[in-house]
Simulated assay, not measured.
Amino acid sequence: MSVNPDRWKQRLQNLQRAQARLSKACEQESYNELELAGLIQTFEFSFELSWKTLKDLLEFEGYDVASPRHVIRTSLEARHLNAVQCETLLDALIKRNLLSHAYDEKHVLEAQALIVNSYGPCITNVTNYLVKKNLDE
């Protein structure tokens, strides 16, 4: 299988745009019902792009990875993530489906807190690392 050396860099551009939207959404003081739905959706999209960008980078570096869990764990081994980022992204992976089906107020508020306080900042840190890595090459 031939790996496009620019694929991870191309996907990184999409991740940067998604992460910027997520950061902006996380900055709000309060949310109405539609804004909360948008926050969760923006997180889902950003999370998908995060692990897929890491996957493309790992494949470029010669790793054979497939599932999101394998990508996240291998990213730790390859030193693209630190232990806290790895655990945060694994937690986000586990809770991703729960977050997308958060219909009652308790679960929606739990999703908001996780995204604003944990997952969003982690995605920002990972994106910043990847941008720096791209610039250093």
Rank of each mutant, 00 (worst) to 15 (best):
E61F: 15
E61I: 13
G62I: 14
G62F: 15
Y63I: 00
V65I: 07
V65C: 06
A66V: 07
S67F: 10
P68H: 08
R69L: 07
R69C: 01
H70P: 07
H70L: 07
I72G: 07
R73W: 13
T74H: 12
T74E: 15
L76K: 15
E77N: 14
A78R: 13
H80D: 08
H80T: 04
A83V: 09
A83Q: 12
A83T: 10
V84H: 12
Q85E: 15
E87K: 03
E87G: 02
L89R: 04
L89P: 03
L90M: 02
D91N: 09
I94C: 02
I94L: 11
K95C: 07
R96Y: 11
L98T: 02
L98Y: 01
L99F: 09
L99A: 06
H101K: 12
H101G: 11
A102K: 05
Y103C: 11
D104L: 06
D104E: 13
K106G: 07
V108H: 01
E110W: 12
A111P: 01
Q112H: 04
A113N: 03
A113M: 00
I115C: 00
V116P: 14
N117T: 12
N117Y: 14
Y119D: 00
G120P: 07
P121Y: 03
C122F: 10
I123M: 00
